Amino acid sequence: MKRLLAAVVALFTLAFSLPVIASEQDILLTVRAGEDVHEFTIRDLRDLGEREVVTSTIWSDGEQRFVGVSLDRLLSHVDVAEGTLEAAAVNDYAVEIPMSDVRAGGPIVAYMRNGERMSLRDKGPLWIIYPYDSGAEFRTEEVYSRSIWQLNRITVK
């Protein structure tokens, strides 16, 4: 009986220590703009067009390669051009992002890092990434504070 219990505990521990990657069918992101609600799977986000940002971050060592959809393209797709964005994470942590950040060459909603999908444990499945290395305006405390990981919803206010 002790061996069986030990085996069950070991399997349970292993299951919860493995990184969990969302499936292709899982809704990863919900965007709310007034009465409109848009839900996106990883495939939906990819279909909007991919953009790569290669940059260092304050949360990782060395240069990282992120792939995702440009925030400006995502918001254009849902027909949002004004307001303030409230970006929220799985744990309900939220940040405000001004529409002035939503521009060509600005942040992406990243779903891949260094060629791999990001698990919840690895700041995924979605992470708002700015091109920090492309200019000093992206390396400020304010911009870093908007780089929310484990993103799962955006509400336009």
Rank of each mutant, 00 (worst) to 15 (best):
E39A: 04
L126V: 15
R73K: 10
I97C: 08
D44A: 02
L74S: 06
T84V: 15
L29M: 06
E137V: 14
V69F: 01
G115L: 09
I108D: 04
R46L: 04
T84R: 09
E116M: 12
R146W: 01
A104Y: 07
Q64E: 13
M99R: 07
N152V: 07
R73M: 10
R51Y: 08
L126K: 15
R117A: 00
V9S: 05
N91T: 14
M99N: 02
H77G: 02
S119H: 03
L74K: 07
A89R: 08
R153M: 07
G68E: 12
S134T: 14
W149P: 09
L48H: 06
V143M: 13
R146H: 04
V20L: 14
I128K: 11
M118S: 05
S145P: 11
S147D: 00
F40M: 12
M1P: 07
E50M: 08
M118A: 03
Y130R: 05
V80M: 05
G83E: 04
N114C: 12
P107A: 03
A94N: 10
P125G: 04
M99H: 06
I21E: 00
Y111D: 11
S60K: 15
L28Y: 02
R32W: 00
W149C: 08
V37F: 03
R46C: 00
L85S: 11
S100Q: 05
A89S: 13
E39L: 09
I148A: 06
A10G: 12
L28M: 06
M118D: 05
Q25P: 00
V69R: 08
G115P: 09
D36F: 03
V67T: 03
L29H: 06
L74A: 09
N114D: 14
A89C: 11
S119A: 13
V78I: 12
G115T: 13
